[in-house]
Design a protein around this nucleic acid. Structure first.
Length: 718
DNA sequence: CTAAATACCCCACGCTGTTC
DNA sequence: GAACAGCGTGGGGTATTTAG
């Protein structure tokens, strides 16, 4: 029998082709394609800008430009013979394992290459949530059997090789004895399409089926729609009548250990309510509150997880709209507009082209296979719409280390691609100004696509680039906005100044009572106190320093609060500074809600914290323009990972074994989950964790001190 | 005077970038 | 993965203007 499709197409392939980009799908379809893509990159033919970049967050390296998946793996594979680098060898091994042998029908997992599986925690969380879902449906099954006085069973096929699982699935369905199948397996067109369903609900009464996909996420997303459509398509082709599909995901207003009902406020709403109208707290009130010994609140072992609270079986599709349709209705609408078989035919035909023809496609202008839902719930194929979208995922080669339009902040990647394709330029060097005639403008009113921050970025870059030798420190100051900068600096003239920073950890399944899924649980802090104007980051003895790192697998928050409050008030009334303060404020507010004993003091810190990022990031509510300070080495970013090294590049994290926030977070989670012995923790890891966090607050001192110095020098010379 | 066209505002939504 | 914040876009609704 001849096959309908020209090649295999995994679920990940299908999702990528329809919701992201055909080119991206091509590259990640197989390891052969990926290797060829790497070769094209090496030969300066193609450049990549894939959606799921692996972040290299804590790399305080002044070289700057963001490191994406391809660069990372390119480096790893380039050094394939360098056996000395164990970390790279480990990553290479892991990377190769994740590739599916497309022709292996006995594999357990047939979904295709999934980038998120590289992010450590997300795969662990995914598996744990999947297991929890099975238990949830087991208990539902027991309950309904009691209610209807019937004995329907469940079956878990996850241990079976795919090809055996397909046979077993048929057998189980035919027996009519089962209500829920876990990891049921189906194939179509001689294994060209393969899928496993997390949960298959069988209604033996009328022979209909419901597909339930489980995700460790808090809401339905666009991806999930295509995920379920792929499964729906294969099952229908197998002759099953599907009467509904749903996405089982985490409910974000469920707090472990608390009574749950679905109308509960979620934590951020509770925080908002608490803060709203909260009176202004005085320093003295806080001292009174924490007077004497601070006794942490004690909590017993976590209560059992309430599955009815934790899971939500969501039939509605993606978006926040109140009027949004059910996923199943959307699939029906999609089917009425497009023939899914035809779409897969086209994609697989393209996939079976040789490398040379594929390269032409990879160099074409748009993401041709993408189909988007519009606001009226109609689907539109991008390549056939009035405004085809230029592709930014895979484009003709350019050197990412040279300042280019993709460095501009706050502009849509699609818009940057449009500017690139229509102007036929990419490096900032190629533009005289951002008003050059070859730069496209908005068709509607001929206004520019650029924002004020991009103009500022461009101007400073040009000044630097025209003659680096004459670029002076003061050139990073936005001189036209001198007054605003001055008033911002004035906030830092009284002492003490407390610079603080938190490290946090999170679990998809809330680990402690009084915590919710993915809640940022603080386990470590660092505080640097500038007690008077003689502080100097090069001389640590000129400042006071406090830190804390939790040391057990219990909920770290009670001890955290106790120590934090003791230290943060210890040098007298002052001002509090964080970098991107909304993060630290959120953590404090959540503790004020969930651990109300020292609520006033926690809220006092919230009320009196200012944001060091204000020097860089614009804020219309505070009337602060973008980039009051902009250095060419920022490369368009305002993260402290870029700003601090630009202001003093003699200062970096490369000597630390823990040099990223997420690495610190993951390490603590490992320790807390009992995967690191306390011996190794105490002797090796703990000291590094403390060093890392301390360096973070010191980086803040660098930023403030350098800005003050540069501003002062400029004032004195004028 | 009515109906259509235009102007304007608010809100929902999506994208970008930051923190962990 | 999450939350938060800024901000542009475009729909929906209402008010105002214009054409007949």
């Amino acid at each position: 029998m001849s096959k309908i499709f020209s090649s295999k197409l995994t679920k990940e392939d299908f999702k990528r082709a329809l919701s992201s980009c055909y080119k991206e799908m091509w590259v990640l379809h197989s390891q052969e394609n990926f290797n060829q893509a790497l070769l094209w990159n090496k030969n300066k033919v193609l450049q990549f800008n894939l959606k799921n970049e692996i972040s290299e967050e804590g790399d305080f390296d002044s070289s700057g430009s963001s490191i994406d998946l391809f660069e990372t793996y390119f480096k790893i594979f380039e050094s394939e013979n360098d056996s000395e680098n164990l970390e790279n060898a480990e990553l290479r091994k892991k990377w190769k394992e994740k590739w599916l042998d497309l022709n292996d029908n006995s594999a357990l997992d047939v979904d295709g290459f999934d980038l998120t599986k590289f992010e450590g925690e997300s795969i662990i969380d995914g598996n744990l949530v999947g297991e929890a879902a099975k238990q949830y449906f087991e208990s539902l099954n027991i309950q309904t059997n009691l209610n209807r006085n019937q004995k329907l069973k469940t079956f878990d096929l996850s241990g079976l090789p795919f090809v055996n699982a397909v046979e077993k699935t048929k057998e189980l369905i035919n027996s009519k004895e089962y209500e829920y199948l876990f990891e049921a397996a189906f194939e179509y067109d001689d294994f060209n399409l393969r899928t496993r369903c997390d949960i298959l609900e069988i209604n033996n009464h009328n022979d209909t089926f419901k597909i339930i996909e489980i995700k460790a996420t808090s809401k339905v997303k666009e991806d999930h729609f295509f995920d379920l459509m792929y499964q729906y398509f294969i099952l229908e082709k197998n002759g099953l009548k599907i009467n509904d599909v749903a996405l089982g995901h985490i409910r974000s207003n469920y707090i472990r250990g608390q009574d749950f009902n679905e109308f509960n406020l979620n934590l951020s709403e509770m925080c908002e309510q608490l803060i709203e109208d909260y009176p202004i707290i005085s320093f003295e009130e806080c001292l009174a509150e924490i007077n004497g010994e601070i006794i942490p609140e004690n909590y017993l072992e976590a209560d059992d997880l309430n599955y009815n609270g934790f899971f939500i079986i969501d039939e509605l599709s993606y978006g926040e709209s109140q009027k949004r349709l059910k996923i199943f209705e959307l699939i029906k609408i999609f089917e009425s507009q497009f023939e899914i078989t035809e779409i897969i035919k086209q994609i697989t035909e393209l996939l079976s082209l040789g490398f040379e023809d594929s390269l032409n496609l990879l160099l074409s202008n748009n993401c041709s296979t993408v189909i988007k839902k519009n606001l009226k719930n109609k689907f539109v194929k991008i390549s056939e719409s009035d405004n085809p979208v230029y592709c930014h995922h895979v484009i003709a080669y350019f050197d990412k280390n040279k300042e280019n339009i993709f460095n501009f902040t706050n502009i849509n990647k699609k818009t940057k691609a449009l500017i690139h394709y229509e102007s036929q330029k990419i490096y900032l060097d190629e533009f005289k100004s951002l008003f050059d005639s070859e730069i496209p403008v908005k068709p509607k009113d001929k206004s520019t696509y650029f924002r004020p921050e991009n103009f500022r970025h461009f101007e400073v870059y040009k000044k630097f680039h025209s003659n680096p030798a004459t670029f002076r420190d003061e050139d990073i100051i936005f001189k036209e906005e001198k007054n605003i900068l001055e008033s911002l600096l004035a906030k830092y003239t009284s002492f003490p100044i407390y610079m603080y920073d938190f490290e946090t950890v999170k679990w998809a399944i809330p680990k402690y009572n009084n915590s919710k899924s993915y809640q940022q649980i603080p386990f470590q802090y660092s505080i640097d106190v500038l007690t008077d104007k003689n502080y100097d980051y090069k001389k640590p003895e000129t400042m006071k320093h406090f830190d804390f790192l939790a040391n057990s697998s219990d909920d770290p928050r009670p001890e955290f609060i106790k120590n934090f409050l003791k230290d943060i008030f210890s040098c007298g009334k002052g001002i509090y500074v964080a970098y991107n303060d909304s993060f630290e404020k959120m953590v404090l507010k959540q503790m004020a809600v969930l651990f109300p004993k020292y609520q006033k003091s926690l809220i006092y810190i919230v009320q009196n914290t200012i944001d060091l990022m204000d020097f860089f990031k614009g804020n219309s509510k505070k009337s602060i323009p973008w980039f009051l300070i902009y250095h060419p080495a920022f490369h368009g970013s305002y993260s402290i990972k870029k700003t601090q090294p630009a202001l003093d590049n003699s200062f970096n994290y490369n000597d630390l074994s823990i040099n990223k926030g997420d690495k610190a977070s993951q390490t603590f989670r490992e320790f807390s989950d009992g995967n690191i012995s306390s011996k190794i923790w105490n002797s090796k890891i703990r000291p590094d964790m403390i060093k890392y966090c301390n360096r973070d607050t010191l980086a803040m001192v660098v930023v403030l001190q350098r800005i003050k110095e540069i501003f002062k020098n400029w004032q004195e010379n004028n």
